[in-house]
Amino acid sequence: MNIFRLAGDMTHLASVLVLLLKIHTIKSCAGISLKTQELYALVFASRYLDIFTHYVSFYNTVMKLIFLGSAFSIVWYIRRHKLVRRSYDKDHDTFRHYFIVLPCLILALLIHEKFTFRVVMWTFSLYLEAVAILPQLVLLQRTRNIDNLTGQYVFLLGAYRALYILNWVYRYFTEPHYVHWITWISGLIQTLLYADFFYYYFQSWKNNVKLELPA
């Protein structure tokens, strides 16, 4: 494992911890899109179908369990916890799941490396992860007050994807036959979706003002 991959995974882990901190400690999910969180739960459920059948490493198995467990517990918190659900901004989180899930499923059925259930589900999870942040970005744009933890959560998620791209570039030059077009293109699209957010995030950081996305 190279440093970019490790840094990417740690950034991903940090994003989850920041979100759990906000939800578990502050008992608030203000500004957090339940739609995006449900899509992530679906992403990990469909990607890690092989968690108990294809062993890669102890590290991988533990990380998979963390991402699965945290994704589903975050959804549980927002839907069921009596304090947390009160802070959920339902009226602004209006993105429809099937606008995202259905095209990803169709695309996975059409474009994949191998037509088996496992591989199609794995490909579906890649396409879905690429666009799962959209409901969250839409919600941020509609939220006048983006709190620090929410801003950091989205920033860490974007940073994780950018680091994975560096990891692929590194692996391409250091490993023989390392070519994964489907992963790379969906990962690149996923990272580009954050470009706008990154711009305003750095602007607010540089000028020391509160983060706000223009409508």
Binding site: R5, D9, H12, D50, H54, V56, S57, N60, M63, K64, F67, E113, K114, R118, V119, W122, T123, Y164, N167, H177, V179, H180, T183
Partner: peptide
């Protein structure tokens, strides 16, 4: 190419 099943990334 390695099989996608053997993919070692998260």
């Amino acid at each position: 190419n390695p099989e996608p099943e053997a993919h070692d990334e998260l």
